[in-house]
Design a protein around this nucleic acid. Structure first.
Length: 272
DNA sequence: GATGACCTGTGA
DNA sequence: TCACAGGTCATC
């Protein structure tokens, strides 16, 4: 389940393995996967001959900058377009056959070429693949980065207050709103609110200053701790996050509700 | 602001 | 056989 931590792993993989390699061809067999009118022909023409110069990330959106390319193109372009990659729910990036964080898994037979929604073939023979069984990811060109709010890794108390301080919606829904704070998904938000001791259904605007500060620190700490552990699924709440589960902190039966349209596990004893 | 559709693999 | 998972977007 790619949330900000998994996307960051993918970004790092691309940064260390896929920059400065000339693109030969692009294989985009799934037209539905290309957004905003983009076609396989266009993306192939636009990217061939260029190299990725930087791998950036804003929230869950991967941003790959390109160089001007060497072929006949309008002179004076300082750089080429930016490729935007969304991993959706099941998307993973592979560079030369390896995926971020899972060096051995893809050596198994859990590989299906039909899941390769987008492939970049480099002239050196290697390739970057976006593998996505459920097709909820996306590829676009020059995405609008400003549709996303402040990146969750940079949240502090002041930014949190500015982003969601006066929203009337449930705090969980506010934290998952990518236009407010970019990067947090269902699992991370449940873990964060559980750690911070905040009821996910409370109005975001109802949090006082103390709670805002605690929540901001918890977001920061949780991202760093779970990032070191290996991803969104390594949270302390995760093993108990199933029907009949008990709170790992105080042993109370967890509640399972729908908040912000998503399945939510939380502890009615210490989350208030 | 809230809800459902999109899509398909997984597990009960 | 079917509910469920979940990021995002259109629509209510």
């Amino acid at each position: 389940m790619p949330e900000i931590l998994e996307v960051e792993e993918a970004r790092h993989l691309i940064e260390t393995r896929a920059l400065d390699r000339t693109i030969a061809t692009v294989d985009a067999p799934d037209a539905w996967y290309l957004k905003r009118g983009l076609t396989g022909d266009v993306i192939g023409r636009v990217l061939s001959g260029r190299r990725f110069t930087a791998a950036r990330r804003r929230g869950k959106l991967l941003l790959l900058d390109t160089d001007p390319g060497s072929d006949a193109r309008p002179a004076g372009d300082a750089q080429g377009p930016t490729l935007g990659l969304h991993l959706g729910m099941t998307g993973r990036v592979l560079v030369d056959g390896t995926a971020a964080g899972e060096p051995l898994l893809y050596a198994s037979n859990r590989e299906n070429p039909a899941w390769h929604r987008f492939t970049i073939q480099f002239r050196d023979g290697g390739r970057l693949i976006l593998r996505d069984p459920r097709r909820l990811g996306a590829v676009e060109l020059d995405p609008d980065e400003d549709r996303l709010g402040v990146d969750a890794f940079t949240v502090n108390a002041a930014r949190l207050r500015a982003a969601i301080g006066n929203r009337r919606t449930a705090i969980k829904a506010a934290l998952m709103n990518q236009a407010a704070i970019a990067g947090l998904g269902n699992l991370l938000v449940d873990e964060i609110l559980w750690r911070a001791g905040i009821d996910p259904a409370r109005s975001a605007a109802a949090l006082d200053r103390t709670e805002q500060g605690r929540l901001a620190r918890t977001i920061s700490t949780t991202l760093r701790v779970l990032g070191r552990r290996g991803g969104s699924h390594t949270g302390d709440l995760m093993p108990a996050r199933h029907p009949g589960g008990f709170c790992p902190r105080d042993g109370a039966p967890l509640r399972r509700d729908t908040v912000g349209g998503r399945t939510t596990y939380w502890c009615p004893v210490h989350q208030r």
